[in-house]
Nucleic acid binder design. Structure first.
Lengths: 115, 115
DNA sequence: TCAATATATGAATAACTGTTCATATATTAA
DNA sequence: TTAATATATGAACAGTTATTCATATATTGA
């Protein structure tokens, strides 16, 4: 049970338990990351870095079927990662805010890969 | 097919397609986010913000069984999110680098929630 | 109103994933 | 070496999810 570092580790564990976010907040953060953790959805985000696009053009940029892309866009929109704007017959999608790009770039920095 | 914004959107789509990262790189980034997109694993990360801890204390801080926590630690370690260091009979886990906390905080900024 | 275009969506299936249970490995103390 | 403690792991099951297919909704132009 004890690990020999009672003094340091036990204190950290107590602080951690005391400061653990509520289940609900953890779930919200998890949803954010889950929404950007699928290759098909990540590609959509990489594409939207280059500007607002309608679904047809997103499909052109990332590949796959219109239906699959539409399903993924719904998930990204529900998570607040992208926003949609009707523009006549089409719907233009774009990244919700600058944090999205920042998170992507931070992950790539972590990986030591340039995207 | 055309969406009325051929000029702007088509250009963005072309740039997006041309600059789309390789499948392999997309998969690596996806793995990073997937590893931190599960509530049980997120709790471990929130806990480790307070310092290095052995498995027993992580279990104490986040709840659940030792087996489940161990499985999750393996996933986090494989993704390069946490690192492990044997210390006698126990194994001390800690966050891999400062980027981990930065990504978490950025996500929370996005959510307008303080953790 | 009708036809055409753009996007969304429900259902079904296949693949994936988290947890549990039982057990294995590794380290330390006796 | 043996017992005790700490951690890891394989298998199985349950729950989740991405994609496909077919179809529905919404907008525009004639």
């Amino acid at each position: 049970m004890a690990c020999g570092h009672e003094e340091e580790h036990a204190l950290a564990a107590q602080r951690a338990a005391r400061n653990m976010p509520a289940e609900e907040d953890v779930a919200r953060v998890a949803e954010i990351f889950k929404s950007i953790s699928e290759p098909s959805r990540l590609k959509i985000l990489f594409a939207l870095r280059h500007g607002e696009m309608c679904v047809y053009h997103i499909v052109e940029a990332v590949g796959g079927t219109q239906s699959a892309v539409s399903h993924q866009l719904r998930i990204l929109k529900a998570a607040g990662i992208v926003k949609a704007r009707r523009d006549g017959q089409t719907i233009a999608y774009s990244l919700a805010d600058e944090h999205v790009v920042a998170v992507l770039e931070l992950a790539c920095t972590h990986l030591h890969c340039k995207i």
